[in-house]
Design a binder for these strands. Sequence first.
DNA 1: TGCACGATTCTCT
DNA 2: GAGAATCGTGCAA
Length: 200
Amino acid sequence: MILPRNFYEREPLAVAKALLGKVVVHETSEGTTAGRIVETEAYMGPEDKASHAYGGLRTCRTEPQFGAKGHAYVYLIYGMYYCFNVSVGEVPGKPEAVLMRALEPVEGMGLMVRRRPAAKGNVVKLANGPSKLCMAMDISKKQNGADVCTPPFYIRDAQPVPEEGIDAATRIGVDYADEWKHKPWRFYKRNCPNVSFRVK
DNA sequence: TGCACGATTCTCT
DNA sequence: GAGAATCGTGCAA
């Protein structure tokens, strides 16, 4: 079953943890790909200096973060890669989001391998990074603003990762965020080989 | 109108 | 372990 919208209408840290174990599904004309979420990061709105919406910055780019919860926020990074977030939070209109950092492929492996030549057929490397999973799942600007509660691009319910199986750590690539970079707001499934390799 | 830079990845050494 | 690739966005001028 597809996760209902109210799944996302909670405090971001809770959603980030609850998303571990769930499955992202993308149905395309090429075929269907799906991957279990094994790593996420939470971005806590206007107060969070690491967030693109820091200070309440609202532009064309950050717009999806301000809209209805359970929508995709996809953006281009370093001019060549995409990152995929979902808007979440208890407060309507507050720009909070959860970044998907790594997936464990569960369906459409052959298709993912084709979309990810650099992984050289290594299943672990297909989606063990925020931009890698976008390539493997064919997520791009077209998915920006998409509702992840409805096909063809959605997140399916699945066995959650128990609290004791979740590790928390600092977020990646946000050294510019002063005190916010130390927040343990990255969550991942313990001992999972599919989490993004850059540990610190 | 111009400019610096990033929620990254890959390749080569 | 280092460096390149590459461009939309935000902010200064």
